[in-house]
Nucleic acid binder design. Structure first.
Length: 271
DNA sequence: ATGACAATCAGAGATTGA
């Protein structure tokens, strides 16, 4: 991780990503984690709710501005922010026929403004097949947006559930995932293509240890056996990476009452 | 080899997820 200390004049900004697997099902676990972790910004995926049904008061009462991009039953993303948000946009550009709610952007107005993009990348199983084709085409659109963000030369990040296991070290049993849409070579190649444009993958910039996961299946005691995968990521532009001071996974959230199958991942930025 | 688990919509069981 960057050794340079945070600039003393700037307050740390904690930005988290969390696939909550349904806001209705996480109506207690999410507020409990927010109260404990105190992120300034939380990017949420799989709210599985239309905008009108999202319980925004729970979060507004805690001082968060709430911006949602929902749909009925599946998918859906949101941003909670204690700092003002500007220029909120919804939907990943590049395909007007795509009706799935998987992308939301806003500028967080801290001392240093940071453009944040919350994403829920398609799962893609079964692969090969139309769902996998959709995943790869979505990643191509993501690459286009990533290039646009880089060209601004400003602090920006893209974070969320990428549904990508970047490397074998990021799975407890990589061989079990070889043919899966989350780990197929084309998936990893598409992810690398984006990272290699010039992004910093925040977790691996801070931590090279194995057995660091952000998802465990609900079945067969996967969490208890730490049979997990790391699929929730932060990609930072160079100007954002300059602000990075820490990135951690709140694995403890998986041991709580009625947990999501994902846990929060967060960065600290000197912004 | 299969199912195991959870959530949603709907109001049973199919679909989706990873």
């Amino acid at each position: 991780m960057p050794r340079r200390p945070a600039r003393a004049t700037l307050t740390p900004m904690k930005i988290a990503t969390f696939n909550i697997n349904g806001i209705k099902a996480r109506i207690n676990a999410l507020p409990d984690w927010l109260d404990e972790a105190q992120p300034d910004v939380a990017l949420l995926q799989e709210i599985k709710s239309v905008d009108e049904a999202f319980p925004r008061e729970i979060f507004e009462d805690r001082g968060y501005q709430v911006e949602t991009h929902g749909q009925k039953g599946f998918n859906g993303v949101a941003i909670l922010s204690k700092l003002p948000l500007e220029d909120v946009t919804r939907g990943l550009p590049g395909d007007d026929t795509d009706e799935q709610a998987r992308w939301i952007e806003a500028t967080v107005m801290g001392e240093v403004p940071v453009r944040v993009c919350g994403l829920y990348l398609p799962n893609g199983n079964p692969a090969p097949g139309p769902k996998y084709d959709y995943k790869l085409s979505w990643m191509k659109r993501l690459e286009t947006r990533a290039n646009q963000l880089l060209s601004l030369e400003e602090p920006a990040l893209m974070a969320g559930d990428y549904n990508v296991i970047p490397s074998a070290i990021d799975a407890a049993r990589p061989d079990a995932w070889r043919d899966d849409a989350l780990f197929r070579p084309e998936t990893r190649e598409a992810f690398r293509r984006i990272v290699n444009l010039g992004f910093t993958e925040a977790f691996r910039a801070c931590n090279q240890l194995p057995e660091q996961y952000s998802f465990w299946d609900y079945q067969a005691g996967a969490f208890q056996r730490n049979d997990g995968i790391r699929i929730d990521h932060f990609l930072l532009t160079p100007q954002c990476a300059d602000l990075l001071t820490d990135c951690q996974i709140d694995a403890f959230a998986r041991a709580r009452e009625k947990p999501s199958d994902h846990v929060p991942v967060w960065v600290d930025l000197a912004a």
